[in-house]
Design a binder for these strands. Structure first.
Lengths: 172, 172
DNA sequence: GCTGGATGCTTGAAGCCTAAACTATATCCG
DNA sequence: CGGATATAGTTTAGGCTTCAAGCATCCAGC
């Protein structure tokens, strides 16, 4: 199944393919997961820049807000995006400046601020989102529906495995 | 001990779980792949910082050099790490400054420079690498060997799918 | 009420990362 | 040889990201 005919990019995982055998196969699994994800993510970033002159974090923030019409606080956004709080501060500031997002005080809590998409934000995101979905489908089109289902399920197990092994965080 | 960056349980993929059905399942697959990878990667970064006061990119560069005792040019490193050329310039400079990596001219080509681990670099990396491998095994310990094998194989298909769909890169 | 701890957010320093422009060297080919 | 093209690496501008420190606000219990 390896494309021996075309040895294109030599990534870390490929380089390890001929490493001393008997070594932990968990490591190999992880490296393959990482390179696959990095490959897809890089392509998505490139296309977002090329077609919409935007970035993945901006897209992700818009996506989070698009799914929450009532708005989200900065903290809620940072949890959904799995990034730090301070990160969202700057990201949101740039999107507000560009007129895609608005922030307003949350009634009853003078600490929190609600972020919401503006009309322009909704419009822009709708276009980007459609393209994004098509890109993903294109990139994964080499997998059959059965393979996709199996992969989805196994990744679910992996996710649970990681969350279980993680230092007891809060589970609301 | 509680920085503002700990990822709780509600991530983007989970938030999408109740999205309108009939939507592309490729997108769900991708989001699950991304959150799983992000989860593991974030934990590895945290532990590298905590236990070795280093970062994942530094670790990755050392790993690439460790697998190539004869040394690698900056360009070869950037291809293996799948990052830009300019990125490696700064990364390597910091590692050279810290005495973990040395650079020397490549005989016969005055453009290229070879990077190699110093003795200290080899020593440090050996410790980090052992810990890293154990962490990965720990985080993925919830998967059976069969599941790991299946996941590895499916990710291989996904990788091929992406590389096939990618705009004709160089094929030497 | 008041006070101590939690929560929401911002700031600053440092590192990571990319694209694009640039320099220098190598190589191909007529 | 000499020019065109390719390759190796650096630089720069700008965005992303984290951690740690800090400010303001909220809330629970006294």
């Amino acid at each position: 199944m390896s494309p021996d005919s075309l040895p294109p990019a030599i990534d870390a995982e490929t380089a390890l393919a001929h490493a001393p055998p008997g070594h932990k196969d968990e490591l190999r699994l992880w490296l393959r997961m990482l390179t696959t994800t990095t490959l897809i993510e890089g392509e998505i970033r490139r296309r977002l820049r090329r077609d919409f002159d935007t970035t993945l974090p901006r897209f992700d923030l818009l996506a989070a807000l698009d799914r929450a019409p009532a708005g989200l606080s900065l903290g809620e956004v940072s949890r959904r995006m799995m990034v730090s709080n301070g990160n969202v501060t700057g990201l949101a500031a740039r999107l507000v400046e560009d007129g895609l997002v608005e922030r307003r005080a949350r009634p009853g809590d003078r600490r929190a601020q609600l972020l919401r998409l503006t009309a322009k934000g909704r419009r822009d995101f709708a276009r980007q989102s459609a393209a994004h979905e098509a890109w993903i489908a294109e990139l994964l089109s080499g997998l059959s529906a059965v393979e996709r289902g199996a992969l989805f399920r196994l990744l679910g197990h992996a996710k649970i495995s990681v969350r279980t092994a993680l230092p007891e965080e809060e589970t609301p």
